[in-house]
Design a protein around this nucleic acid. Structure first.
Length: 387
DNA sequence: CAGCCGTGGGG
DNA sequence: TCCCCAAGGCT
């Protein structure tokens, strides 16, 4: 059955083009618009005319689910309401606000671009996709998204959703390569209306996110079912399997008169992964970690997957800095951070998750707070829960 | 152009 | 539980 698709693979030159007749394109655009007017989710970055906010939302949404962005978008805007406030902030604070969202290079480029725009562009983002495309962190997709949504330019976006919707409607398999990308750009642009390109683009992505999902698409609810040549899942490229790894981190606290402090370790500046961010000190899995550690069960086990690897994580309680220093892989770059300041430092997502679960850190918002778990001087962990 | 960069929610 | 992968960009 793979053979059937190979016969009409767009990368093999024998492309069926135009992909849709003019009448089909009109029907598609109209059905999609009507569906979107009825079913669009209410999201905080929709129906606002503010290029800075559109830019921020689009960068946050790169390879990131709406739910995760919702938790960060408003808080980030509260801290950096304008492009000028963002440009004036230290990178450390920008990363702290970004903590947990992942792909931290996005935050660094966002910050760099804010400074560039304030210093060289008079504080105003370029208003065309071509102009936006030149800025760091703004690629083909994001340039078209900002230009169409914030400035009304009639240009199509092609993200993962749009690609999937178009391929399924046309009855084509997923393939990689520049020819395919070009084909999708042309096809998507043939569907964009002169007016309201921004809403059309968001409708395409909404359709891909809510109806034409990667697995088990809701075809019975699809506004373009009548035109669709797939009506279900389509063949997709294989991906490399995940690997597994075990890691162990130390959770060490001390009590100062100002309150509880947590021992964290700063990742190297040159690290390709989460450079310069703070995490719990990592311990060796293989060496003898000493009686102190082995006497007790880990405080916490979590699974944390990053890119190609599943990490099975053990968090071990340690009483003093000397214990942690003895067992940590690198004794340097250690910092004591007051529990009350944890929101203001650039934690890795894993560190944030652990500290929140151990009640050392505030949960996002509205969640019930509990008494922090204390790690006593005797090296014994004692939960602060009543009873 | 292919590999790299995070995370968490859903099936 | 385990596996999938998302509103991409850069090198």
């Amino acid at each position: 059955m793979k053979l059937l698709y190979a016969l009409k693979n767009p990368s093999s030159e024998t492309i069926l083009e135009p992909a849709l007749t003019p009448a089909q394109r009109t029907a598609f655009e109209r059905s999609l618009r009507s569906w979107y007017e009825q079913h669009a989710r209410v999201l905080p970055w929709r129906n606002v005319r503010n290029p800075y906010r559109t830019w921020l939302s689009e960068v946050m949404l790169q390879q990131t689910r709406v739910n995760a962005v919702l938790e960060h978008y408003e808080r980030f805007l509260r801290r950096f309401p304008t492009i000028i406030s963002l440009a004036l902030a230290p990178e450390e604070e920008v990363l702290a606000q970004w903590s947990g969202l992942g792909y931290y290079r996005r935050a660094r480029m966002l910050h760099r671009t804010a400074k560039l725009v304030v210093e060289e562009y008079g504080g105003e983002l370029p208003s065309t996709s071509a102009g936006l495309r030149r800025l760091p962190g703004i690629g083909t997709y994001t340039a078209a998204a900002i230009a169409s949504i914030a400035f009304g330019e009639s240009i199509a976006v092609v993200d993962g959703n749009v690609e999937r919707v178009l391929l399924r409607v046309l009855g084509l398999p997923e393939t990689s390569g520049a020819k395919m990308a070009e084909f999708l750009e042309r096809t998507a642009n043939a569907l964009v209306p002169r007016r309201n390109a921004g809403d059309h683009n968001q409708a395409m992505m909404e359709l891909g996110a809510m109806i034409c999902t990667p697995r088990s698409p809701r075809c019975a609810e699809c506004p373009v079912f009548a035109l669709c040549r797939t009506r279900g899942e389509h063949p997709t490229l294989e991906r490399t399997p995940m690997r597994s790894e075990r890691v162990r981190y130390a959770l060490t606290t001390r009590r100062k008169q100002e309150g509880l402090e947590v021992l964290l370790q700063r990742r190297p500046m040159e690290a390709s992964l989460m450079a310069n961010m703070l995490e719990l000190p990592q311990l060796s899995m293989h060496k003898d970690t000493g009686a102190l550690v082995l006497l007790e069960e880990p405080l916490l086990r979590v699974r944390h997957s990053i890119v190609g690897t599943n990490y099975y994580v053990e968090v071990v309680g340690m009483a003093t800095r000397r214990d942690a220093g003895k067992h940590a892989l690198r004794g340097d770059a250690m910092e004591w951070v007051p529990a009350t300041k944890l929101q203001e430092v650039p934690l890795t997502g894993l560190a944030r998750k652990v500290l929140q679960r151990m009640k050392l850190m505030k949960l996002p918002s509205g969640m019930p707070q509990e008494v922090p778990l204390l790690i006593g001087r005797g090296g014994r962990a004692s939960a602060g829960k009543k009873g």
